[in-house]
Each structure stands twice: as structure tokens, then as C-alpha cells.
């Protein structure tokens, strides 16, 4: 048996908490990425024994993922056949789901651009431009993968003035241009501000190389939502094509006899009538009797 597959019984409360944190959850935690340096030419001396090659053998990646509980990975390597290689991928249940190899053709780092930067941990705005991201299956997966990678935590609300980081991906002519900009909000005279962008770095020109995509079955399985998270269907409410809401409500019949009409002295009840009403004989009953 795999040593990681044993029934692990925690001995301390802390160990128990740790294991509980790793269990599958209904509402999942934010995915964590691991960035791995591959068998590089400079590092060959030190790492010659354990060069990882994700496309040939995934077991070491899966082992790392299980150890560190990370489901996203970015693997960088460089060799003669595939220079400046970047493998981006994600895991499902500690197995590789999607993996896409990208070649870096041009790279401008964060330090190369002398501009003001945005603070660390800013939730970026993600924009994908190009029909390729919608037409091609591989590009569609890459888009989903990049969103998964860069979207950060899911938040209920956001400070509007703090939106200052844009990641823009453009797919043209078999190349993907990744650019990051700092957003400057300018006054426009109306409620919506005018946007000006400023190059911030890092920016990359990427080409797609090999891909390893999950089969449709597995991908569908990974998308499956637990039943408890699905929104409950509300009864008696329906919508039509225009978005109008229809509902069915149940009301009791209004008693028109008690309707308050215009107040006049002539319509006032005499004390005898009032007493008869108070005694509780409703007109319906008197009819049947």
C-alpha cells in the first residue's frame, strides 16, 4: 500500500485539525500553486538525479502535490529542444488534470519596467481577448487554467478604488501575449471613471507547445458540484423569456361588508345594530340557519 493511502489516525488535536483541513470540503478553499524549478542547465550538477519531466512521468508531481496540498503548478525548465519552457497545470484529487506547455519568446520582468507597482495580493482583473479563446478547445482549456491560476480568492465585495491591476491575455496568430498593467482611474465627469493604463510588467509572449488535457469524462467529473451547494428551486415562482417574474399567491376572499366607505353621519350604525354585530352572528350563518 502507498504510505500516503493508509488510514491515518491523528494522535493529537493539532494533527486532527491538519488532516481535516486537507479533506475534501463542500465549499473549497482557494487553490494554492507550487512553482517548481526543473532540471536547468545551471542547476544540472545539483539536480541531475531528480529531474522532473511532467509530460513523461507525472508521479513525482503528484507526490509533491499530495505532500504540499497544492492543486496548481507552474514548472519551468530549459533545454536545447525546448528552450524557456513553462508548464502550467492543475490537479484534481492529486492527479494531473490539465497540463499545457508554453514557450516563452519574450520576457520583461517586473523590475525591468520602471513604473509604480500595485501592492502584493491585489485581486487582478482578468481580460481575455481574441476569438481563439472561444473557438479552439486547447485555448479554451488554457483560458480556464489561467483564470484558475490568477483569479485569487473569491471575495464577496471589493473596494472600487482598489481595482488597480489588469492581466490582459491576447491570442493572435498562434501567439499569446500576456500583459500586466496598472490601472489609473481618471475623472470623466460622470459616475464611471475614465481608465488609463500603464505598463507594469511582467509581460510575456508565449507559444503553445505540448498539451495534456483531461478526457471529457474526467473533466466533467471535476466540474461536478455537490448537491448541497446547488441552489434550491423555489416553488410557485417562474420566469418568462423577458425576465419577468411570475408568482402564485394565495389570498383569502375579502369581506366587502366590512369595507370602510365614506364616513357620514347618516351611515353611522345605531347602538342596537352595533350590539347585534358584537354578539358574533355573522350574516353567512344567519342565512344558513
Amino acid at each position: 500500500m502507498d504510505p500516503l493511502d493508509r488510514v491515518v489516525k491523528p494522535k493529537t488535536k493539532r494533527a486532527k485539525r491538519f488532516l481535516e483541513k486537507r479533506e475534501p470540503k463542500l465549499k473549497e478553499n482557494t487553490k494554492i500553486a507550487m512553482l517548481i524549478k526543473g532540471g536547468n542547465a545551471n542547476l544540472r550538477v545539483t539536480e541531475v538525479k531528480n529531474i522532473t519531466r511532467p509530460f513523461e512521468d507525472q508521479t513525482s508531481l503528484e507526490f509533491f502535490s499530495k505532500k504540499s496540498d497544492c492543486s496548481l503548478f507552474l514548472f519551468g525548465s530549459h533545454n536545447k529542444k525546448r528552450p524557456n519552457n513553462l508548464v502550467i497545470g492543475r490537479m484534481f484529487d492529486y492527479h494531473v488534470l490539465d497540463m499545457i506547455e508554453l514557450g516563452v519568446e519574450k520576457f520583461v520582468s517586473l523590475k525591468d519596467v520602471k513604473n509604480s507597482k500595485c501592492p502584493e495580493g491585489t485581486k487582478p482583473m482578468l481580460i481575455f481577448a481574441g476569438d481563439m479563446f472561444d473557438v479552439n478547445e486547447e485555448y479554451r482549456r488554457l483560458k480556464s487554467l489561467l483564470i484558475d491560476f490568477f483569479r485569487g480568492p473569491t471575495v464577496p465585495s471589493i473596494r472600487l478604488a482598489g481595482l488597480e491591476y489588469v492581466l490582459h491575455f491576447t491570442a493572435v496568430d498562434g501567439k499569446i501575449y500576456m500583459r500586466s498593467y496598472k490601472v489609473l482611474l481618471k475623472k470623466s465627469g460622470c459616475k464611471i471613471p475614465r481608465i488609463e493604463l500603464e505598463e507594469m510588467g511582467p509581460s510575456l509572449d508565449l507559444v503553445m507547445r505540448r498539451t495534456h488535457l483531461a478526457s471529457d469524462d474526467l473533466y466533467k467529473l471535476s466540474l461536478k458540484q455537490p448537491k448541497a451547494l446547488k441552489p434550491k428551486k423555489k416553488k410557485n415562482i417562474s420566469h418568462d423569456v423577458f425576465g419577468t417574474t411570475y408568482g402564485r399567491i394565495h389570498m383569502q376572499k375579502q369581506d366587502l361588508g366590512k369595507l370602510q366607505t365614506r364616513k357620514m353621519k347618516g351611515l353611522k350604525k345605531r347602538p342596537a345594530e352595533k350590539a347585534a354585530e358584537d354578539s358574533g352572528v355573522s350574516p353567512k350563518k344567519s342565512k344558513s340557519a
Partner: peptide
Amino acid sequence: GPLVARLPEPTLRLPREKPPPR
């Protein structure tokens, strides 16, 4: 205080990290 916008739930469905709990 600063102006804070309430974001809706994300609509794009991304793969889960682990299968739903049994």
C-alpha cells in the same frame, strides 16, 4: 469609508480541487 461594491457569485465554473466529500 471607502466605496465597496458587492460582487455576485462567480458564474464561470472551474474544476474542483478535490471531489465532493462522500
